[in-house]
Amino acid sequence: MTNIPLSIAAKMDEYPPGCSVSIELNMNTYFDVIRGLVDIFAKQKDAYVFYISATIPSNKVMDLLELFEVDISRIYFVDCIAHIMMGATRTTDRILYVESPTMLETIMLKVEFLTRKYRDKTPIVVLDSVNSLAIHNDLKILSEFLHIFVTSLRGKGAYMIILSLKDQSTPEMAAMLNLVSDEVITVE
């Protein structure tokens, strides 16, 4: 059986900084892919991870990562789902909250803040997930957002990784991801 975390990290290692990669996955491989990215790949590159959580509140992602003994000291979250779920939020420097996933500019601003504040290492920006953002935004503004966001991150030499749940994707969404990504990786 393939070790998904190791293989996704190895695959990502083929790309240079400043690239944009979309990863199509399913619910069975979801957490393995995240581990591969934020634990193995980030460690290999000695990089910071700026994790945009639009699917699961960052609290939960942090809890899960800690459960699997992943070192979260290099991970910072931009959480755009916790507020609209009216759940309890955690006050920590590791999490920047965006009031709603419709505030796409604010997501860019929070990542901009992190890339400026933590300049000493390569940034890996993980967007989890484009499908969740598509629930709250129409595809036109989402495409515009991704185009500007990805282009800006390329200029900063960041790795941009866009997660996409295959079961929830549409042909339009796939076309959009093709447009903004250097490569689309499918994890079965």
Binding site: E105, T106, F113, R116, I148, S152
Partner: peptide, 14 residues
């Protein structure tokens, strides 16, 4: 955005 590292700006999405 008004932040401790100063004013940050991004384009307004249309």
């Amino acid at each position: 955005d008004l932040t401790p590292i100063g004013v940050l700006l991004v384009p307004l999405l249309k």
